[in-house]
Design a binder for these strands. Structure first.
Lengths: 340, 340
DNA sequence: TATTTTAGCTAAATCGTTTTAGTTACCAAA
DNA sequence: TTTGGTAACTAAAACGATTTAGCTAAAATA
């Protein structure tokens, strides 16, 4: 079942494929092709269900209208939403998206970038894993269109779309302080990732500005966000001993941690917000129907995705465009998990 | 910054590109290429950071090692998990995945299929929207490798990987009956979608087999799963009047409905499971940390994704393979939302 | 010595487009 | 009669790989 090509249409009509190509690319007028013939070509194309071969097009033109997306994990609703928005905004301009989940693993992202290069994608949107700055650097050095999201590398001058993590964490922590919490814990991951570091810094600064001590025992930076054991250990340390609870509030720096954390806290029989107040980054469904709906810092995922695509497409169109760092506003949603 | 091609390596070493191609495809032995030259070619390829152009390869060989995935919405964790698993399993065999969210819209899926055809994907995994059977039929007729997931069309003989929806709904409903619920409502969507219809049928059969009346007033089939208003209206009808509640239990046929439903039920001040018992399909995070963790029919998403890819790759390899319908086991997880 | 075999390599076609640089035929103007 | 212009179209190269068919020189065999 061979697909019909330009040539098939051309021979069928007894014209050259050049002519067919011109017509189907809407350049009939420009190249003064007889209107009757234009019509015939178009009709025949439809009749034979002609679909241009994008490989051939891409090979010839050097453009594939495809963008490569590397995120941590498409199954994580945070990235799912982001991916969705990116797909949608890209489609508006006729671009396809190849999705890759890196699992925050620089080895994987390296391979994925190579694969995407081989696929001749026109540009990249990447949420880079820790220790992958060399990969990003290589792309930037070759002036390959690229936008980073969610995190960036301060030492690399690249496009970036994200939020002010410091400020958001500061605000969330201040909210807990305002409600009278004194021993506020912070649970985070990926210690060397800039966005996570900024969140911890924001948290600490809020404590300092409120004349509260920064107790490193209350700051738990885990290595893997999917490792339940590590989280449980951290929470046990904080809340294990009934009469000697170390903390009366927690700031979760990702919703993945928050969801698992709340599940475990509940299993300990502790009540939110009475025993423990909770604030978290991101706003998954779970937080809305939770035992005690969770107060959150919500990121503007739609806008992040949309903007990232726009910046990328602009860079693809104008290779000389200089890099942009776009910081979008977060939304602080107060629910019941902090009491009042 | 032109990328290096086979030709670049060839001219640099003063050999033909045929030779270079042979060597880099590991056919040095087969074509009796001098070992020293093999070595040189490989070294030079690495040195020049040669990346094969997949467009050219695909154009010549007719294979792209790419599969097209069409699902309803990648932001929906149900499909997110599925997509993740598919991506992962495909990567194991060196396949890329192009993701498309159809929003259950047949117009969109039609366009997406066309786009994927143009991209010369080797095969399709599709969760087809309602009224898209002609699109699927066209693919099947041309013997294009294809696997349907989550739903299928009874009139089309295609590959399919899914679950026994009738049985699962029957089991869930029976569980509610066993716990003494008499007026069990069913909330679903997409009335003409086979998987949803099977669920309603399973629900009804369970009632019949338990000698309970099937009350059509308790069966709410919505048109859109994302339309909160429609759902709220249905729930108000069921639970609106305090002293005259129509139902004492609900079966939600998707987790999207369930999450929004539970949120609204809670806002009415009704208690789960005391006032209303709840069972749902699928098992999102939200159900685990919910006010009253939800009893669910969990689909084996990992296995569905993995199997779908395997069936597809097999069909790609063996175009004469006959179609398979694979039904995987669900898991019934009992939590607190039904009382005891 | 003549013929065949083998090792080691290459030329060129091909996939389906796009695009440059023409060509042809006709008519008008000089 | 020559020149120039224009309308309408086409040949062929190019993109970067794969793959078929075949070439040359040396070694093995008859």
């Amino acid at each position: 079942m061979k697909r019909t090509s330009l040539n098939d249409i051309a021979t069928k009509l007894g014209v050259s494929k050049t002519l067919v190509s011109f017509v189907l690319n809407g350049k009939g007028k420009e190249f003064r092709i007889n209107e009757d013939i234009c019509k015939k070509v178009q009709d025949t194309a439809k009749e034979m269900n002609y679909q241009p071969n994008r490989l051939a097009q891409g090979l010839r033109t050097g453009k594939t209208n495809t963008i490569g997306l590397i995120i941590a994990d498409i199954a994580n609703p945070f990235f799912g939403f982001l991916g969705r928005e990116i797909e949608q905004e890209a489609a508006k301009s006729g671009y396809r998206v190849i999705f890759c989940s890196s699992d925050e693993n620089p080895e994987k992202s390296k391979q994925q970038i190579a694969m995407l290069q081989q696929s001749q994608v026109d540009g990249y949107i990447i949420s880079p894993p820790m220790y992958s700055s060399d990969q990003v650097q290589a792309l930037v050095k070759n002036n390959i269109p690229l936008v980073l999201i969610d995190r960036f590398f301060p030492e690399i001058d690249s496009n970036y779309v994200g939020i002010n993590n410091f400020e958001a964490a500061y605000k969330a922590t201040s909210h807990l302080i305002r409600l009278g919490r004194k021993r506020i814990a912070c649970i985070s991951v990926n210690k060397d990732m800039i966005n996570m570091r900024e969140r911890t810094e924001g948290y600490k600064q809020a404590l300092i500005d409120a004349d509260l001590p920064v107790d490193e025992n209350l700051v738990k930076i885990l290595t893997f966000s999917h490792d339940n054991k590590e989280l449980v250990k951290a929470l046990k340390d904080l809340f294990g001993k009934k009469e000697n609870r170390k903390a009366d509030a927690i700031l979760f720096s990702t919703s993945k941690l928050g969801i698992m954390g709340i599940e475990f806290i509940s299993s300990l029989g502790l009540k939110i917000p009475d025993d423990i107040a909770v604030v978290s980054f991101d706003d998954p469904d779970a937080y809305k129907i939770c035992v005690s709906p969770v107060t959150v810092v919500n990121q503007p995922l739609k806008e992040i995705g949309k903007t990232a695509v726009q910046v990328l497409l602009n860079k693809i169109k104008h290779p000389d465009a200089k890099s942009q760092q776009i910081i979008l506003k977060t939304e602080f949603i107060i629910r019941k998990s902090c009491g009042s």
